[in-house]
Simulated scan of single mutants.
Amino acid sequence: MKVNRESVVRGGLRMLNEVGLEQLTLRLLGRELGVQATAIYWHFANKQALLDAMATLLLAEGAPHLLPQKQSAEWDVWITAFGHGLRRALLAYRDGARMVAGTRLTDKEYMRTVERIGQRLVESGFTTRQAVVLLGTVYSYTLSFVQEEQVVYPSPGERSPQYDLQQRSEWLSREEFPLLRQAGPILLDRFDRRYKEGLELILRGAERTQ
C-alpha cells in the first residue's frame, strides 16, 4: 500500500483517537497503515513534524466554525465564535489540545481565518496590539481549558476515575476547605457552562478598552 502525506496525517489523527498522544508513534502508525516505518519517515522526519501537520489539519478543518454566521455581527460575536469554534475543533480528537500546543503550522488556512477576525476587531475600534492580545488571550484560554477538560474526560462522556467528585469532596474537610470543597463541581464538571462564563469575563475586560 502506498501512502502520501495527507493519508499519513489523517491516519495519525485516527490513531490519536485510539491510543492517545503518548502512545502515538511513527512505527505504530506505519503498522496501522500497512506500510514500513520508512514510508512514514519519507514524509515526516520525526514525531514532532507529524504533530505539526496533524495540528495544522485539525485547525484548518475547524477554521470555518471560527466565524459567526452573520458577517455583520458585532466584534464580541466574532470573538465568541472564535473561542467556541476553537474549543470544538480541539475536542474533536483525543488529546487534541495537548497535541496542538507548541506545534508549528505548516500551511496558512487557519491563519487566513484568524486574519479576518483580527481585521474585524480593528474595524470595530481596537488597535492592532489590542486585537492581537485579545485573540491571543482567547486562544491561550481555550487551549489550556481544553487540556484540562480532556484530562477529566479523556474520551467524550467518560470521566477519569482520578477526578471522582465524591472522592474529592470526602478528601477535603468542610472546616479547612469550605470553598474548595464546593469548587469541585464547578471546576470539574459542566465544562460547557464554565467555558462560556470564562470567555464572557475575557470579553467584559476587552469591552473596557473600547
Results as ranks from 00 to 15, higher is better:
V3G: 08
V3I: 13
R5E: 13
E6G: 06
V8K: 07
V8T: 08
R10H: 12
L13T: 00
R14C: 08
M15I: 10
L16P: 06
E18R: 13
V19H: 00
L21N: 06
L24G: 02
L24R: 08
L24M: 09
L26D: 13
R27D: 11
L28N: 11
L29A: 00
L29K: 11
R31N: 15
E32P: 02
Q36M: 07
A37T: 15
H43I: 11
F44A: 01
N46A: 06
K47I: 01
L50I: 10
A53H: 14
M54N: 12
M54W: 08
M54I: 07
T56W: 08
L57W: 11
L57F: 02
G62P: 08
P64N: 00
L67K: 03
K70R: 12
Q71T: 12
S72Q: 12
A73K: 02
V77C: 12
W78V: 01
G85R: 03
R87P: 00
R88V: 02
L91T: 05
R94M: 04
D95F: 03
M99C: 09
M99W: 04
M99L: 11
V100L: 10
V100C: 09
T103W: 09
R112W: 06
T113M: 01
I117P: 06
Q119S: 13
V122A: 04
E123I: 00
E123A: 14
S124V: 08
F126S: 07
R129W: 10
A131R: 06
G136I: 14
Y139R: 10
S140F: 06
T142L: 04
S144E: 14
V146K: 11
Q147M: 14
Q150P: 04
P156H: 06
E158N: 07
Q162W: 12
Y163N: 13
Y163D: 11
L165Q: 10
Q166A: 14
Q167H: 14
R168W: 14
E170T: 12
L172C: 11
L172D: 12
E176P: 00
E176F: 07
F177H: 15
L180C: 10
R181L: 10
Q182D: 14
L187I: 04
F191C: 05
R193F: 08
R193W: 14
Y195A: 05
E197P: 00
L199R: 03
L201E: 11
L201F: 05
I202Q: 07
I202L: 12
I202Y: 06
R204T: 11
G205V: 15
G205S: 15
G205R: 15
A206G: 05
E207I: 00
Q210L: 15
